[in-house]
Simulated scan of single mutants.
Amino acid sequence: MNFTFNQSRPIYQQLADQLEEMIFLGIFNPHDQVPSTTQLSQQLHVNPATILKGMNQLVDKGLLEKKRGLGMFVTAKAPAMIQAKRQEDFYSNYVKAIVAEACKLNINEDTLINLIKRGYDHD
């Protein structure tokens, strides 16, 4: 389990994003316990309050749940929630732009679909 941080965004946000990615990739599965705030703080040399702030973001999203006296665990619905959000982001960030560019180029829907299929055939 490796975390990397840069200066572009707050550390707590980067931690939350990286933990979310680990859940999405199956490094942490539903009902798995994630490392404690203390463990992460010591391992990463980051203030425990910063770690907790990042983890609480995932609690607020419903991806982690706190079990008093036991720690934080991945919720059963976390992977599906992450996938649904990423699919919506994919639509918003990529599909809409592709369709807009296709319209500018006078590429109709059928031709665009064929181009997308062609992209799948090359992988």
Rank of each mutant, 00 (worst) to 15 (best):
D123K: 10
Y12I: 15
R86V: 11
T37W: 10
N6G: 09
M72N: 01
I116F: 13
M55E: 06
S36C: 05
N56V: 05
L15R: 08
L40A: 06
Q18R: 08
G71D: 01
R118E: 12
A16V: 02
P30I: 14
T38C: 11
N93V: 14
M55H: 00
E101G: 05
L52K: 07
I116Q: 07
L105S: 11
L112S: 08
I113L: 04
R86E: 12
V95Q: 06
V34Q: 11
T50Q: 07
I116W: 08
N108Q: 09
A100I: 08
L58S: 02
G69Y: 02
K96T: 09
Q18H: 05
K66T: 07
T38W: 04
L40S: 08
P48I: 13
F24C: 03
N56P: 09
D17E: 14
L40Q: 00
A16D: 01
M72K: 11
A76K: 03
P48D: 03
A76I: 14
I107K: 08
P48S: 02
G54L: 00
N2Y: 14
F5I: 11
M22E: 13
N6Q: 00
Y12L: 11
A76Q: 10
T38P: 09
R9T: 00
I82K: 06
I107T: 09
L105G: 04
M81K: 12
D17Y: 01
H31K: 06
L15N: 05
L112Y: 06
I107S: 06
N2S: 14
K53M: 15
Y91R: 11
P79I: 06
G119D: 00
F5K: 09
L40F: 02
L63V: 04
V74S: 08
N56Y: 02
D110F: 01
L52Y: 07
N106S: 15
